[in-house]
Design a protein around this nucleic acid. Sequence first.
DNA 1: GAGTGGTCTAGACCACTCC
DNA 2: GAGTGGTCTAGACCACTCT
Lengths: 242, 242
Amino acid sequence: MYRQIADALKAAIDAGQYGPGDRLPGENPLAAEHGVAAMTARQALRTLASEGVAESRKGAGFFVIAPFTPIRRRGVARLAREQWAGGASIFSADDSRDLTAESSVLGAVTPPPEIAGVLQLEAGDHAFARSRRHIVEGRPVLLSTSYLPLALVEGTAITEVDTGPGGIYARLADLGFAPAHFREEIQVRMASDDERAALNLSGSTPVMKICRTAYTDEGRAVEVNDMTLDSQAYILEYDFDA
Amino acid sequence: MYRQIADALKAAIDAGQYGPGDRLPGENPLAAEHGVAAMTARQALRTLASEGVAESRKGAGFFVIAPFTPIRRRGVARLAREQWAGGASIFSADDSRDLTAESSVLGAVTPPPEIAGVLQLEAGDHAFARSRRHIVEGRPVLLSTSYLPLALVEGTAITEVDTGPGGIYARLADLGFAPAHFREEIQVRMASDDERAALNLSGSTPVMKICRTAYTDEGRAVEVNDMTLDSQAYILEYDFDA
DNA sequence: GAGTGGTCTAGACCACTCC
DNA sequence: GAGTGGTCTAGACCACTCT
């Protein structure tokens, strides 16, 4: 029964009867229309929410999700040396519209142990950290926290709010620690409460975690970037040779 | 209230009171224990299921999910020419245990339009397709369907059930169409009913979709592989240079 | 056959949003 | 202030699993 109501609503949405952002009928109107209990109509609406078709807003109703053309994130091209050596932001390689980023310097922090291990920090060593939140068309889509060995970057432009043309990779190159090699690890898991709040996600939505490590050509890890992506907002693309 | 019950159960699981595969208390015992209605206890159990901590089995109960060490899929190394030119399976580069694969030849099919476009097929042209299902430690983790232009591979070993050492990439090389370049696109979305059944997933679980295109060094697309991964079962890893 | 989850009913109170 | 979703109660029937 609740499946039938959900399917009927979805068909109405696909037919254009309800457009993006429109409010769907509430539990009581739906229950009356289909001759079922309110709880049953409610379950139909929750089903649509769990399928990503609609979202609920406390005290307001269920609304059709606005479609969002995913951002194409070009994993390899965006980190090519020509990109940042030329002074460009690595985001400029991505296919996205109107990216704005809120950047905040966290300063010296004690990094999570896995990250401390990758950066080969001794116990008690600190890392310099900076976090970012990317917003595209008013929608927050990515959180990132970047960690660098504090001993390496203390007092340099990397710790400034504005790191200058080409960003921290160009500055690392200035210091003689140019990133030569990257590794990205991708996992999917359910969003934590913090991530839900920061990315404006509703219900139990999956996020992509990307953990990128930048290595010099001598194999020294100089940066770890821990990212959380709204999984609906991105297509990841990796190009490589056989 | 239901949050409290869910948290109490989760704490008991973390404390080892319930091990992997153990059955959790049912609605009625839980409701009696906490002095709430059965529906409320039920919601606590459903919450744990939606968080991936437990899973429900019809008529049997809620069971603690068995932990599974994710497979590390080395996106670049596994497709290196030395890998398949040396006669190895590309899966052997992945960090996994006891991989078994069910392979079935679908034969000549009309591919989905996007894939026909990538393979530059004319209207009415067919593709040769093969599907696979990978199982690790008894758990199905990956579905894949591989498409190649039928005109290119008809009558060759590629259409056989056993494609020989190095698989279809080595055979493509034999034909003079050695893959030189790959592109992988990764998306996350909720599993369809078919995917849920084939991957043995419960509830609304996210899957990773990977669509890989293999190009010759002249830029001709010779294969498209459409994959569906159990997102809990994999860590994707991409290594590349700046 | 007993117990289980899946679904459904018919109420209820609260905090919230919107007008 | 009216309507909404979020939660809760106290029942019920069914199909299923396990013993």
